[in-house]
């Protein structure tokens, strides 16, 4: 179910404890919540735990949601809170994240590709791991902003709303996050040479609302 289809009637039912209504909310948001958590922790197991905790909190605190912000903003705010809590409990988050990127045994869910090419698949996995390491090295504030922007396709306005920041601050954090990621990729491997063929393929603007 698309997020836009979560109407106030579904929210109202879920607020009263209707499991079917709540399940529709879960279906609409679980992918984004999971991906935010995954990119924040770079650990699929942690991402699962965080996602479960997020929806438990959503369920329990839904009666307190009064529609002052959009439901998505409210849920992403909770997601960020849980991510930060998890990071706080794992004081050595960056170290863990970097290790996680090198651990081939960790279950990484890959998007299936009907034109499976082992060599390209290997390269793609390596690139993903490299990017994941780069994300782990970002400041927490920059990481929040760039994950919401690029992984979840949120607009600057939505990000500002979730983080309680001005749009200018969001712009600045995204700028710095991309700069840092770019410099990390320049220093680590031949990412930009490999990406040469993709230079003309700009990210689609409509991706913002994936």
């Amino acid at each position: 179910m698309k997020i836009a289809l979560i109407g106030t009637d579904i929210v109202a039912r879920a607020q009263k404890g209707d499991h079917d209504a709540f399940e529709q909310i879960v279906t609409a948001f679980e992918k984004k919540v999971y991906n935010m958590a995954l990119r924040y922790t770079n650990d699929p197991e942690d991402a699962l735990d965080i996602s479960q905790e997020v929806f438990l909190r959503v369920y329990r605190f839904l009666p307190n949601y009064k529609g002052n912000s959009t439901l998505s903003t409210w849920i992403y705010r909770i997601t960020m809170n849980v991510c930060h809590d998890t990071a706080g409990k794992k004081s050595n988050l960056n170290e863990l994240s970097l290790d996680a990127g090198d651990d081939d045994e960790k279950p990484i869910t890959e998007i299936s590709d009907v034109r499976f090419d082992p060599e390209k698949e290997f390269e793609r996995k390596q690139t993903k791991e490299l990017i994941a390491r780069g994300i782990a090295l970002l400041d927490s504030e920059q990481r929040d902003a760039i994950i919401m922007r690029d992984i979840n396709g949120m607009s600057y306005d939505e990000i500002a709303d979730v983080l309680g920041l001005s749009q200018g601050t969001v712009k600045s954090r995204i700028f710095r996050a991309r700069e840092k990621l770019k410099n990390f990729l320049i220093k680590n491997g031949n990412f930009f040479e490999e990406m040469q063929s993709n230079y003309n393929e700009e990210p689609r603007k409509e991706d913002r609302r994936r």
């Binding site: 879960v26 869910t109 990621l181 993709n198 700009e202």
Partner: peptide, 25 residues
């Protein structure tokens, strides 16, 4: 370069593990 970074970042989204939904519910 920034375009390349953004493009790659947007390909980082993963499918949700099948167990998540049932775990949540």
């Amino acid at each position: 370069r920034l375009n390349a970074v953004a493009l790659q970042m947007r390909q980082m989204q993963e499918d949700v593990p099948e167990c998540l939904h049932s775990r949540i519910m």
